[in-house]
Computed example of a mutant assay.
Amino acid sequence: MISPETAHVAVRRVASLGTFVAALEMLSQHRRFGKDDLLGPQWDAFRTKAAARHPRLARVLKSKAVPVAAYAMQAGASAATFLWPRNRAVQAVGGAALASMRGTQRRWSPLGGDGADEMQNVINVVLAATALIDDRDKGVDLAMRALALETTMAYVASGVVKAVSPVWLKGDAFAGIIRTRNYGDQRVYRIVARHPALSKAVSWGTIAAELGFPLVFVLPRPAARLYLAAMAGFHLGIGQFMGLNRFVLAFCATHPAVDYVLARRASAPSAGSARRKELP
Rank of each mutant, 00 (worst) to 15 (best):
R276G: 09
L111W: 04
V21C: 01
K170I: 00
V122F: 10
M1Y: 13
P67Y: 11
K170S: 09
A197D: 04
D185L: 08
A51W: 06
D137S: 15
A257G: 06
A163C: 09
A263R: 03
R265A: 14
A69S: 11
A223M: 15
P67L: 03
A253K: 01
A268F: 07
K64E: 15
W168L: 01
F20P: 00
V21P: 08
A201Q: 03
A89M: 10
R264P: 03
Y227E: 02
V164T: 09
A268T: 13
R264A: 15
A58L: 04
P256V: 13
L219M: 15
A175V: 01
R190D: 14
R264M: 12
F251G: 01
A223D: 07
A99T: 06
E118H: 11
W43S: 13
A131F: 07
R276Q: 12
I191V: 15
R86D: 14
A271G: 04
A223K: 08
G95D: 01
M153D: 03
P67F: 07
D117S: 12
A131V: 11
I178L: 07
I123R: 04
C252W: 13
G233S: 10
V218I: 14
V140E: 12
A266W: 04
L27H: 05
L24D: 00
L147Y: 01
F174R: 02
A89E: 10
E150W: 08
Y71C: 04
W108T: 04
A257L: 01
I191M: 14
R246Y: 13
F33N: 05
M153Y: 02
L39C: 06
E118M: 10
W84H: 10
P222E: 13
F82N: 04
V21K: 02
F213A: 00
I133V: 15
V11N: 06
L38W: 02
L249V: 00
Y227H: 13
